[in-house]
Design a protein around this nucleic acid. Structure first.
Length: 518
RNA sequence: GCCGCGGUAGUAUAGCCCGGCCCAGUAUGCGGGCCUUUCGAGCCCGUGACCCGGGUUCAAAUCCCGGCCGCGGCACCA
């Protein structure tokens, strides 16, 4: 083994290829293999229609990215269509956020999810009313005007007397609902299922209810409507009308699927294929919309907003420095299994690091700096020519220092070494507050196994604060970056040499960056 | 409590439908090494898993039964 390890990688690879060609080939094809999704049942090329249907009560997070990306991937795979539909039919308890509609669209675009059609349910109320009337006419829906009593009766396997009214009478009651005759809770439209179904929530479930929009105005349509469809009714109607062929969503919707089937049965529609996958967690991040909202509201000084890098929102991950390709890749790896999955941060970070490594320029940053004077001996002045990226050695910046100039080193380097090589410059021994130049050659540094460390010319240093998310806190680490950081604006992704990858969060006289990962 | 869905290494996933090619593949993590003017990337080697118990079978991660555990649902939320 040690024999193998003492051989250089190129030689190792060559030997492998020569001696075991089938093995090398196997490796190569395994590497190229892209994770692809299993085929969809009853799917025809060009005919598949899918949808992503978020509730615009907040921005989307990693958990929503699963249905968004999976649906988009399938749409691409079958050259089908992806529908974006905002499900905003509860102005009372899940009040939509006016800004969320656009924020969600921005996040989707950033994720690379494109859609072909776009709908907003609160703008389709007349459609729901029309279908409701037809359902009543078909005698598979009725107005329950028993108020709270109606629910109690059903819990006992009985029902409100109005269930037995002829359709014409129910239709009249429905019109009175629309006219605002009833207050909240006084009347609801129910689908006729089975009042004695073993699962009480399935018994004549509510298709439409009254919401006092004077008290709870909707951000888009204000107080124009008082009768609102429930999720299950609105979804079935829209999925059918929009020609959705496959519904892929989280398994929390399994029971809803059963409810929705009642609408298809009533209307004589052909139901789509339903596929449920497990829930997603992101290790170390808060995903819950309600928890995030609560934290922002209760501790506005401690959190940066919905895009705080400690949150698992798409915006938060973006601000952290995660690339959309990394999110897509990790979602594709998890796939469509019905099991829950906890995405490990190490895994996401690793995928991201590989993508970032190719595009992030290398910049020197010293944390907790110590100021030292240079004592040069090889010449009066030295010029360090350091490539911004090891893959593109022609792109360099030059940093000139002269005898007597001051440089900054990270305190941890200062305290743990006696001899060092300042990257791209020369070798030094550390004597109290002076760096005394020894042999300038790189070979010498290698022979002596000197650590090659980053440094910042004091006169050009740019104060830099690194914000590092650690669990629920945001650790602040400060230091100085080399002057060339000024060439990078907000949103630039950099690698601070021997420190880690960061994303520029604010650029000005001073810089603030967010620590992405090692 | 009731109903539904699941359980492959620390994490994620392949294999399970159509039992043998699986003493279980891959990625990440971890340990070691090579390379390299970064503690990054790359390369090599290693490490580690079929929830438990029965059954069917020449043969079970794969099929059957029971148990345990986890998740989801049981709204006039989505």
């Amino acid at each position: 083994m040690s024999e193998v390890n003492s051989i250089s990688p190129e030689v190792q690879r060559r030997i492998l290829e020569e001696e075991y060609p089938e093995l090398a080939e196997f490796r190569a094809s395994g590497r190229a293999e892209e994770r692809s999704l299993p085929p969809l049942p009853n799917a025809m090329e060009g005919k598949v229609r899918l949808r992503f249907a978020p509730n615009p009560d907040f921005v989307i997070h990693m958990g929503n990215a699963r249905p968004a990306i999976i649906n988009h991937e399938y749409a691409k795979m079958y050259r089908g269509a992806l529908i974006l539909r905002f499900e905003d039919t509860d102005p009372r308890t899940k009040t939509p956020l006016k800004e969320a509609y656009d924020l969600i669209k921005e996040d989707l675009k950033w994720l690379g999810v494109s859609w072909d059609e776009e709908y907003i349910q609160s703008l389709r109320m007349e459609v729901f009313y029309k279908v409701a009337r037809e359902a009543i006419a078909r005698d598979c829906a009725y107005v329950d005007n028993c108020g709270d009593e109606g629910k109690r009766l059903l819990s006992e396997g009985r029902h409100c007397p109005s269930r037995d009214y002829p359709p014409e009478e129910s239709l009249e009651l429905f019109d009175r609902m629309l006219d605002g005759v009833f207050g909240e809770g006084e009347a609801v439209l129910r689908m006729k299922t089975d009042p004695r179904h073993p699962n009480p929530s399935l018994r004549d479930w509510v298709a439409m209810r009254i919401i006092d929009t004077e008290k709870h105005p909707h951000p888009l349509v204000g107080s124009r409507y008082v009768v609102w469809p429930t999720y299950n009714f609105a979804v079935s109607v829209d999925d059918h009308l929009m020609g959705v062929t496959h519904v892929l969503r989280g398994k929390e919707h399994q029971l809803n699927t059963e409810k929705q089937l009642a609408v298809y049965r009533c209307m004589g529609w052909r139901p789509p294929e339903f596929i449920h996958f497990g829930r997603l967690k992101l290790e170390g991040f808060i995903l819950s919309k309600s928890k995030i909202r609560k934290l922002i509201e209760e501790k506005p000084d401690e959190f940066l907003g919905y895009d705080d890098p400690r949150f698992g929102t798409i915006a938060g991950l973006r601000r952290r420095g995660i690339l959309p390709e990394a999110i897509r890749e990790v979602i594709m790896q998890v796939g469509v299994k019905p099991t829950d999955a906890t995405i490990s941060w190490a895994n996401l970070a690793s995928i991201n690091r590989k993508l970032l490594d190719k595009r992030a320029d290398r910049i020197m940053f010293v944390e907790d700096p110590v100021r030292l004077k240079l004592s040069l001996s090889s010449s009066k002045c030295l010029e360090a020519r350091i490539p911004y990226h090891p893959d593109r050695p022609e792109r360099v910046r030059a940093i000139e220092v002269c005898d007597g100039d001051s440089v900054l080193l990270s305190r941890s380097d200062y305290t743990s070494h006696q001899q060092v090589r300042l990257m791209g410059l020369s070798n030094f021994s550390i004597e109290d507050s002076v760096l005394v130049e020894t042999d300038p050659s790189l070979d010498h540094a290698r022979r002596m196994k000197l650590p090659i460390i980053q440094w910042v010319k004091a006169s050009e240093a740019v104060k830099t604060v690194v914000l590092e998310p650690v669990e629920l806190s945001l650790k602040s680490r400060s230091g100085y970056s080399e002057g060339s950081i000024r060439g990078y604006g907000v949103d630039s992704r950099l690698q601070f040499v021997r420190f880690g990858f960061v994303r520029v969060d604010s650029a000005g006289e001073e810089y603030t960056v967010i620590y992405t990962h090692k």
